[in-house]
Design a protein around this nucleic acid. Structure first.
Lengths: 191, 191, 191, 191
DNA sequence: TATGAATGAGTATTCATTCAT
DNA sequence: AATGAATGAATACTCATTCAT
């Protein structure tokens, strides 16, 4: 009975994160004001400050919650032997991770200038470097190193910039993943 | 003799563009205020408005000046037969174009959320789609289409996100270009 | 005790309206800045924006609050038979209405060019036309129609432009009203 | 041959006045910027300053040029005996004067708050008082004094606020004039 | 668990005016 | 007779943040 009003008790923090991420992804971090978030939630700005100390903290909390799978992936990858198979599996899993928190990663991708100045900039960079270090063999040829990094960027671009290549999203994701996996394979052909 | 004061006569418009691009690329568009630009130039904000109607127009003018080579490249590409060689040459030339106006393209890459709302968003998108249409064969396999687009993104990423792969910039650029050219080649292997 | 600080709690919105109307009437809408209003109230400009969305909204809110009596008068007038007596009574009541919100109507009278571009321009015009339609018989002789409208303008002018005819304000108002009532009577002499 | 360009030589001052009055009457004094005037004339703002020392001076010069007929009328009126006939003739002539410089008087009527702060405020007030002193007999009944002033305001209102009474402008002007002349007559009935 | 009221610092933009050329 | 380049001061408005209740 009632529902919304009832269910809203206690989950305000979560609802703030949801709405904020939605708006951040849609319009960017700077162009999204706390007033806007508050209005969409039908609470006052001050209510946001009950749950979060600053605007930035809202973003940080979202990032912390949603980016754990990357941490896990990096941890897993580090524990594996640095083989072709491991690397391809990392790429596969990363593709899943991206798809599982698309709005966050779309936001990260579209707001790099902003993100760089924020706390999450450093955090994200570290996770990204973690991934890279798993995929890239520092002894390898520079071209092959680039191939591995390129696999990563292909995944990202595939998520956020291929909306007009037609084809349904799932088919697109598969195609993108195949290219990425293939890039890793090429980097291991010989050397 | 004297220099600064003397030479400044008449080139204020250009100096505004230079400083603005520098700051936009460094801190992002929204976080760069006209006050900051004016101060760095040692003129008043009002002087900026003598030369440009709005903040956005400063950016537009920079974009128009610096993105002409892309237009030219698209035009050239369209006039060639849609062969492997053409496409690889387009990739090569695009790499040069990016290197030739690196600060602008770094800005575009880092501020996509912002750019999308601005007039240059549409402009840039059109140029990008132009390039894509030259590189991508709509009849080809989806995976091969992705390969071609990925070549483009590899170029971009190579410019703006590989600063820590070590190696000197020129070597890096060559490696990136090789990967991109190779991606195009693979997309043409058979099919 | 203390008073000012104490009493100010909760009535800020009203105080903004009061001070704004005072300044608008004194110096005009355009020449009155929000800084001025804020300073006189010893609050910040931002506080004004907590209570009103724009400068224009301050004016609109004042107008809506103070012009209700005209609406009521028009409604009353419409419900009466269109006789000489009705019309004279409307003129009498209008004189009271004007006297009851003199600063607002002085403002409207003195700032017509400005008001015309604002939201209240349309609102006021509608109320004025409502009054006119009650006073003016569209079948009547043009000269008699003008007499009725002139009665209205005489009232206005009497409020705002006769300060130097000497005599005390109340006597002046009575004289003005008599002229206006008489104009209506003449318009009904025969016809 | 050519024409515009040719004829424009030498009459810039006049053209500034024309355009300025047009815009002042249309949008008000404050809302009309020198940029706007300059743009419409296809000259630079600085050119305006070659011909006039300030924005206000543009208005003053217009007023001085166009309000001379009032001065003349006042002078003429003062030289006549203070009879009913004189007064009615003054009203008739004033109606002509208003019609002859309608944009100026429409401006004065619509921008009273602004005008009051400007140099022309005082000038206009003096001319108006001059007229009033001719029309009003200080010995007369207050009501009759009001009638005379009301005749003046009827003329003004007739010019600027009766556009929707229908009827063609000339018919309207005649009707308005008749009411005004009649008001003067009533003020002289007995007394 | 929130709100109402407010602030301080900032933003882009506009304006009348000046002056060397 | 006019322009190009610039300024100083102002304006309406927005934002993240605070705090007493």
């Amino acid at each position: 009975m009632d529902g919304t009003r009832q269910r809203r008790r206690g989950d305000t923090r979560q609802r703030i994160q949801d709405v904020a991420l939605e708006l951040f992804a849609e319009q960017g971090y700077e162009k999204t004001s706390l007033r806007e978030i508050a209005e969409r939630l039908e609470v006052t700005k001050a209510a946001l400050y009950y749950h979060f100390k600053t605007k930035e903290e809202i973003l940080v909390s979202i990032f912390e919650d949603l980016s754990r799978p990357i941490e896990d992936l990096v941890a897993w990858g580090r524990a594996q032997p640095p083989t072709l198979e491991t690397r391809q599996e990392v790429v596969r899993r990363y593709s899943d991770v991206l798809a599982g928190a698309a709005p966050l990663f779309r936001f990260m991708h579209d707001n790099q200038a902003t993100v760089r100045e924020l706390r999450i900039g450093e955090m994200f960079k570290n996770r990204a470097l973690g991934l890279r270090d798993i995929l890239v063999d520092p002894e390898a040829d520079l071209v092959d190193q680039v191939r591995c990094v390129s696999a990563l960027f292909t995944l990202h671009a595939g998520m956020f910039a291929l909306h007009d290549l037609g084809a349904d999203p799932e088919a697109r994701r598969k195609a993108v993943l195949e290219v990425a996996v293939d890039l890793i394979a090429q980097a291991h052909r010989d050397g």
